[in-house]
Design a protein around this nucleic acid. Sequence first.
DNA 1: CTGAAAGCGCTAACAA
DNA 2: TTGTTAGCGCTTTCAG
Lengths: 324, 324
Amino acid sequence: MMANIKDVARMAGVSIATVSRVLNQHPYVTKDKQEKVMAVMKELNYSVNGNAVKLSRGKTNTIGVIVPYNNNSCFDALINGMLRKAHELHYQVLLLPTYYENDIESSYLTLLQKKMIDGILLTSRTLDQEQIQSLSEWGKIVCCEACPVPTIPSVYPDRYAAFVDVFTYLRNKGYQRIYFTSARDAQASPSTRLGIQVYQEIISSDYVDRHYDQCFTYEDGKRVGDRMFNQRVVPDAIFANGDEVAAGIIASAKSHGYHYPQDFEIVGEENTPLSDILGFPSVDYHLADIGEQAVAMLLSSEFAQLPVRPTIHFKDEAACDNTR
Amino acid sequence: MMANIKDVARMAGVSIATVSRVLNQHPYVTKDKQEKVMAVMKELNYSVNGNAVKLSRGKTNTIGVIVPYNNNSCFDALINGMLRKAHELHYQVLLLPTYYENDIESSYLTLLQKKMIDGILLTSRTLDQEQIQSLSEWGKIVCCEACPVPTIPSVYPDRYAAFVDVFTYLRNKGYQRIYFTSARDAQASPSTRLGIQVYQEIISSDYVDRHYDQCFTYEDGKRVGDRMFNQRVVPDAIFANGDEVAAGIIASAKSHGYHYPQDFEIVGEENTPLSDILGFPSVDYHLADIGEQAVAMLLSSEFAQLPVRPTIHFKDEAACDNTR
DNA sequence: CTGAAAGCGCTAACAA
DNA sequence: TTGTTAGCGCTTTCAG
C-alpha cells in the first residue's frame, strides 16, 4: 500500500539510483527527469522510509538526552537549550529519563551500540567512570556535569565557583549559623561532595549538623525547613539547592515564626520567578546556554572540558521586603 | 569492526536465523546452541542494530511528542506523565518542539510517513483539522486538547468546566470587575475563545477591556499587571492562565499599591508551589495523568475522546494571609 | 528444532 | 548524466 523508491522509479521510467539522487538533491540529474520523478512522488504520495535511510547511511541524526527527570527547573532549562540547538542543526532529540536508576541509565547507553542515536548528552550521572568510558567507544558522549574522565568532553556549570562565591558572601556578611542543602546524598552526588568540601574550607570543618540532603522539591524544602527551624539553634543563613527548595524553607520557617528576610538570609539556585517574588538572591548557572553548547560540542569534532561561570542575581533591597 | 548477526552465526556455527531466534528469545532453540550463541555474542561484544530491526519489522517503538516549548509548567507536566507511561510500555520518546510554528509542526507529522515513529502525541495544536486528519492515515495520533476532528482520539483537560467553575465562583463571591488572561490570541487558540465565550455567558458580554492575551511567563504577568493596575478602574478579581502569570500580576499589583489578597482575588492554573506560597487558588488540570493516559491511548487500539475534570485547589484561609 | 533465502527500502561505488 | 548492483543488518516464512 505504501509506495517505495522502486515504485517511483518504475512509474517514472528511471532507475532507483536516479530517484535517490532526486531525493537527496544530488547534481547531475536532468531537469526533466527530475521533474518527472517529483511528479510521480507527489502522485503516489511517496515519502522516504527513514529507517531504511538510517540503516543504509549508518547515521540517525538523532541524539539522546539522559536526564533523571524532566520536571525540574534545572533539567528543564538544560533540555530547553538542547532542543533549540538540536533543531537548529537538524537533529532530533530522544528524551531519556533515568529516575536515577542505574540500570535504566546503562540501558540507554546501549542505544549507541544499537546505532539508534548518534551521540549522548549526559546531564546527571549515576554511572561510574568506567562504564561511561567503555561506552564512549561506540559514539560521542558529552557530559553536562564536571566529569572525572579526562577523555570525555563536557560543558558544565562551575559549581565550585558558585559554592565559593555564596559561602564567601555569607561569611563576609557575618552570619554565624550557615546551613546548606543538596539533592542526592554525598555518596551518590559529586556536587554534594563538592559543597561539603567548600563549606569546610570556607565556613567550618564541622558541617554535619548544617547540611541536609534529599532536597528536590518545594515539599522537600518545607520538610527540611521544619527540621531546621524546630530547634533551639536555628539558621541565620542558608544556601539552598534550588529556588523551590528555598521557597519551601521560607514557607516552613514562617510557620515556625521566623520570617525572611528579617530573621535569616537565604540563597537559591536557577534564578526562577520564585527568587524574584520572595526576594532572595539566586545562582544562575546559565543552563540553557550550557545545553546549547553541549549539543554543539556533541556534533562537532572538537574536544573541550568547559566550566561555565555562574552569575549570582542579588535582588534589589525594595524587592526583598515582601511584607510591605 | 562492529560485529553483526552474520559474524555471530559464523562463529557459533549456526545460521543467522538461529541467532535471530536467540536474540528474540524464541522457543525451539536447543539449550546448547543457545548458550553457544550467547557466548559468542558476549565474546564479540555484539549488539543488534536497532535500525535494521526497525526496517525489518516496520515498527520503531518510538513515539513523538509535539509541544510548543518544554519550559512551561503545563507542558512539563504533560511530558512528565508521557515519559513515565512510555517507559513503562517500553517505548521511547522523541521530543518535538514547534515554537508555535506551523511549518515545523507539519514537518514533524511527516515523521509518521517516514516510519520513524509509531505514533504522535499532540499537545497544543497549530495545524488545522484537515492537516491532522490527512496525516492520521499514516499512524495513530492522540490529541491532548479538545479536538474538533471527531475521528481523532483525545484526552484533554476540560477547560470549559474550569472556566465555568472559576467564573461562577468569582461571580458568586460578588466581584464586580473580573478580568482574565490567556496565552495565544483568540484567533490562534481555541481555549482562549472558550474562555471568552464562558466569560460572556457567566460574567458579561462585554469582555474586551477585561481580557489580556499574550501571557506566557512570569514577566508577561508583570507586564499585563502593569496595564491592569495602572488605570482608574482596577480589577477586584482575576483568572490568570497559569500560576506564573498570576504571580507576575501580584508582583506588579504590589508595585502599584494593590495587595493580594486584601485588594483583589486571583485564581491561577497548574497548582504549582507559587500558588501555595502566595496563597491563591489554582486550577489543577491533572496534566501528568493526562499525559499518561494519552500514551496508553496511543498504544492501544481503543478510541475515545476523554475530557478530564479539573480540580480547584482552594488554599486554606491561614495560608492566604501572606503578610503575617 | 534448524537453515536457506527472500525481503524491508534506501545508498553509493562503479561502470557505462 | 544514468543504471546496475552490492550492500546496510535483521526478520520471517517455508521446507526440511
